[in-house]
Amino acid sequence: MPEKADRVQDQLVAFLPNLRRFAIALCRSRDMADDLVQRACERALANEQSFEPGTRFDAWMFKILRNLWIDDIRKRKVAGPQDDIDERHDIAGVSGEREMEARLALNSVAQAIGELAADQRDVLLLVCVEELSYRQAAEVLAVPIGTVMSRLARARKNLAEATGISSAPTRSPVTKGAAK
């Protein structure tokens, strides 16, 4: 059994940056995300016997983290609102016109992602940011693949509308022909 525990622990350490990134996207607060990641790690280590070797460790961890996040949301309905990362004024920014334009565009996209319905946001983050396959995202979210596909399509459409970015393919017909 120590072999299996070592493998879970090793995978967990290597996977921490991905887990933290997903947690920050869910929480929109670095402090809350760090707490969420810590609790997800504790839960994973306490339940490492339930991890099946040969299966996707990332999907297993994303599911643990997401379930904890859902529990937190339910608890916060009673506790009230929490601090938002956008309200942090002590975070230093980079100066310069290009950097400021990029930051404004990023904030616009982040705000638009934040305004998506939770089911659309979760699918968008898992598939587009964490690069899970549709099947893996479906497993994490416990929904059919078709539901993942339709939620992702709606999320992309709503995101494009909210940011003013076209959702049309970016490759031109000339590029397509040249690639053949």
Rank of each mutant, 00 (worst) to 15 (best):
A179E: 12
P169S: 07
I73K: 15
A33N: 03
L45A: 09
A155G: 07
D31P: 04
L36E: 06
F51R: 04
A117D: 15
L106Y: 07
A112P: 02
N18R: 15
E42N: 06
L12S: 11
N158Y: 03
T163F: 11
V140S: 00
L12E: 05
A153V: 02
V140Q: 02
N47G: 14
V13T: 13
A23H: 10
M1V: 10
D71W: 04
R98F: 14
D84R: 07
S133Y: 01
Q111N: 06
R28G: 00
G80W: 05
E97I: 08
V37W: 02
R98Q: 11
A79K: 12
L141C: 02
L19E: 10
R43H: 13
L106V: 03
A92G: 02
D72P: 01
D86I: 11
L141M: 12
V78E: 12
F62S: 14
V143T: 02
E52K: 14
E97W: 10
S150V: 15
H89N: 10
E130S: 14
A40P: 01
L68F: 03
R28F: 03
D119H: 14
E161K: 14
R28D: 05
G177R: 14
L36D: 00
D119E: 15
I70N: 07
A105T: 09
R76Q: 13
E101K: 15
P173N: 13
A59R: 05
S150E: 13
I85A: 15
S29L: 02
E101L: 15
K75M: 08
V78T: 12
A153D: 11
R20H: 15
H89M: 08
K4W: 09
S50E: 14
A117I: 03
R88V: 02
R121M: 13
R151N: 14
T147Q: 08
A23L: 03
Y134N: 13
R74C: 02
A137M: 04
K4E: 10
L68K: 07
E101I: 09
L125K: 07
A168G: 10
R88G: 00
E161W: 05
P81C: 06
K157N: 08
G96Y: 12
A40D: 07
I113C: 01
A92M: 08
L26C: 05
K75R: 13
L152R: 15
A155D: 00
R76T: 05
S150Y: 05
R154Y: 13
R56V: 05
P53F: 08
N47R: 14
D35A: 12
S29T: 00
V78R: 12
D119I: 06
V127T: 15
L124G: 01
M100N: 07
Q82M: 09
S108M: 09
P144F: 01
D34M: 01
C41E: 09
N158P: 02
G96L: 01
A25L: 11
L45T: 09
I113R: 00
H89P: 01
A46H: 07
Q38N: 08
Y134W: 07
I24G: 00
P173C: 08
P144T: 04
R103T: 10
K75D: 09
L65N: 00
A160Y: 04
A118H: 10
S166Q: 03
D34A: 08
E115N: 10
R39C: 01
P144L: 02
A23Y: 05
S166A: 11
R30W: 02
A155V: 00
P144I: 03
A25V: 04
R151L: 12
A79N: 13
A5S: 07
P2V: 11
